[in-house]
Simulated assay, not measured.
Amino acid sequence: MVFAKNWEDFEIAAESMYMANPQNCRYTMKYVHSKGHIVLKMTDNVKCIQYKAENMPDLKKIEKLSGNLMGHMASKE
């Protein structure tokens, strides 16, 4: 498992991973209350990339990424 160093790297890797293999991709989000951060994880059974969000502005970015992924999942393509 690899942690992305910044948000842009994670976002690009997550979307490209989903577009390459949508049937096997999984996207999870876990909130760790004791540490006060959210861990995002995208995997396709071969590769796995993670991102740890520790501040409030990242929540808007997470919401945008989740919306984009849901849009891809709901489209016919």
Rank of each mutant, 00 (worst) to 15 (best):
M29Q: 11
K47E: 14
A20D: 10
M70A: 09
I38Y: 03
V32M: 00
K47N: 13
N45K: 12
E11C: 09
K35N: 05
C25Y: 03
I12T: 08
A20C: 08
A53Q: 08
D58Q: 14
L40K: 02
T43W: 01
F3R: 06
I38D: 01
P57C: 05
Y31C: 00
K41N: 09
G67L: 12
A14V: 11
A53S: 12
N55R: 12
K35I: 04
A14T: 11
W7P: 03
Y31I: 06
E11Y: 15
M29W: 03
S75M: 12
H37C: 05
E11G: 02
M73G: 07
K52Y: 02
I12M: 07
P57Y: 14
N24H: 04
L65T: 08
N21S: 10
K35T: 09
Q23P: 04
W7M: 04
N24K: 05
Y51P: 04
K76R: 13
M70W: 13
S16Q: 07
S16E: 15
E63A: 09
R26Y: 02
G71F: 13
Y18H: 09
N45C: 06
S75C: 14
S66G: 12
F3G: 08
K52W: 03
G36I: 12
S66L: 10
E77F: 10
T43N: 06
K52E: 13
I38M: 02
S75I: 14
P22K: 08
K30P: 00
S66I: 14
Y31T: 06
E63T: 07
L40M: 07
T28C: 01
N68S: 09
N45D: 12
Y27V: 05
H37M: 04
K30G: 00
K76M: 14
K47V: 06
G71I: 12
S16T: 14
M56T: 15
H33Y: 03
R26T: 10
S16M: 05
M42V: 15
M19N: 12
Y27M: 03
N6R: 14
H72R: 14
E11S: 14
N45P: 01
A13M: 09
K5I: 15
S34Y: 04
H37I: 07
K61D: 04
Y51N: 07
G36E: 08
L59K: 06
D9M: 12
F10W: 10
D9H: 09
M29K: 08
Q50L: 11
S16D: 07
K41C: 05
A74M: 13
N24C: 00
E15Q: 06
E54G: 10
N21G: 02
W7F: 13
H72C: 07
M42P: 02
V32R: 01
N45E: 11
I38N: 02
G36T: 11
N21P: 02
I49Q: 00
N45M: 07
M73P: 05
I49T: 02
I49D: 00
F3N: 14
E8W: 11
V32I: 08
S75N: 15
R26E: 05
N55P: 01
N6C: 15
V39E: 02
E63R: 04
N21T: 08
I12F: 13
E77T: 14
E77R: 10
D58L: 11
Q23S: 08
M70L: 13
P22N: 03
M42C: 06
L69Y: 06
E15I: 08
P57W: 13
V46E: 07
T28N: 02
A74E: 15
L69T: 08
